[in-house]
């Protein structure tokens, strides 16, 4: 069973969830992740690289994602991150928790359909 969030955890967890979800699709490099968060949120969520990096670093230390240097022809060397098996499990749980959270919020905030 998933445990409910504390406020602090939710803030952190939200960012974690975003990054893990993006990396879960395919491997991505750091700036790409920042850019995608901005694009997909329609500009309402903005992560500067300097703010994003500690997050990536922490997730990698926790073993949820893993990075490796990739040098593609004609492109400069970048570090690409992908989801680990542990990360996949964690992302699944996070999604579940998020859904429960959103549903709870919706139940309270949406007017009841007659």
């Amino acid at each position: 069973m998933t445990k409910p969030y504390t406020d602090r955890e939710r803030k952190k967890g939200t960012a974690d969830l975003l990054v893990l979800a993006l990396v879960g699709e395919r491997q991505r490099h750091g700036y790409e992740i920042a850019k995608l968060i901005e694009q997909r949120s329609g500009g309402s969520l903005v992560f500067q690289v300097a703010s994003l990096y500690p997050l990536l670093y922490r997730l990698e230390k926790k073993g949820l994602i893993s990075g490796r240097w990739v040098e593609k022809a004609g492109e400069r060397r970048r570090r690409f991150y992908r989801l680990t098996a542990k990360g996949k499990r964690f992302l699944g749980e996070e999604r579940q928790r998020w859904r429960e959270f959103v549903e709870a919020v919706e139940r309270i905030t949406e007017p009841e359909l007659a």
Binding site: V49, L52, R77
Partner: peptide, 13 residues
């Protein structure tokens, strides 16, 4: 190393 790479990307973009 990593930060330099990412910041450079960001600045370039």
């Amino acid at each position: 190393d990593e930060l330099a790479q990412m910041l450079r990307d960001e600045a370039e973009a």
